[in-house]
């Protein structure tokens, strides 16, 4: 949870990247990910120009670079595991290195995107790009109620710990299991009731099943320029190693 809160905090900044339309940034990131994904695994060095592009974007974002690099390292275990396997099995170290580098670079790009784009804006961008309104609304209400429900779960756990304070050793596993499932059922019920309450509140304010977007699209010339430039830069960075072997 700490990671996402930090990204949320960063997203309120005011760099060049922060001020762009969410859609321009999202499409650039997707192009970037495709460029990374299509780099031949046999030649991990071909990733260098693309990595340089990421470094440039990171500098433009004015985010604390080291912290972003370290925080995003949580994604490494998965590719490192499979990298190690392929290394041990085939002695193919460049394939292993490529797996790790590609994964890390891709995750960094997404982290940077979220560090310069507030989530609500990104969701509006998704809607404007044609993602069904229903899915976007589910995402919105998930974000809205996430902290509330998680807080509730934490309070329930604290209450359970208080009751256990005197009886920590030799607890009966079955009763613990029983209690955990009971707590989850209560949480389920509360969430269900919350959902009905929200539903009532929406109906009472005129909702009839279809969502209307408040923010009309505002894709400016600056966004177009950024998108064209980044697409060009990504293409060049991707193709450069092939042209000059």
């Amino acid at each position: 949870m700490g990671h996402s809160l930090r990204l949320d905090e960063w997203a309120r900044g005011a760099s060049v990247l922060h001020r762009l339309d969410a859609r321009a940034k999202l499409i650039s990131v997707l192009l970037f990910l495709i460029a990374v994904s299509t780099t031949p695994p046999a030649a991990p060095l071909a990733l260098l120009p693309i990595a340089a592009l990421f470094a440039l974007a990171l500098a433009l974002s004015a985010l604390p670079a080291m912290e972003l690099l370290l925080r995003t390292a949580i994604v490494l275990p998965f590719p490192v595991f499979f990298g190690l396997i392929s290394w041990l099995q085939n002695g193919n170290s460049s394939f292993a290195a490529a797996l790790v580098a590609r994964s890390y670079l891709s995750a960094l790009a997404v982290a940077l995107l979220m560090g310069v784009t507030p989530l609500p804006e990104l969701l509006r961008g998704l809607r404007a790009l044609g993602v069904p309104a229903v899915l976007v609304m589910v995402l919105q209400s998930l974000v809205r109620y996430l902290q509330l429900v998680v807080d509730h779960a934490l309070r329930m756990r604290r209450a359970a710990l208080c009751r256990d304070a005197g009886a920590l050793p030799r607890r009966n596993r079955q009763s613990l299991w029983h209690r955990a499932s009971g707590a989850l059922a209560v949480l389920f019920g509360r969430s269900y009731a919350r959902a009905e309450g929200v539903h009532h509140a929406m109906l009472a304010r005129g909702f009839r099943g279809d969502f209307v977007s408040l923010h009309p699209a505002a894709f400016t010339a600056r966004d177009w320029r950024f998108l064209a430039l980044s697409a060009l830069a990504i293409a060049l960075a991707r193709l450069a190693p092939q042209v000059a072997p």
Binding site: M137, R144, L148, V149, S191, A195, V198
Partner: peptide, 8 residues
């Protein structure tokens, strides 16, 4: 849309 709460 309220499925979001169940996601939470």
């Amino acid at each position: 849309p309220l499925l979001g709460v169940m996601g939470a």
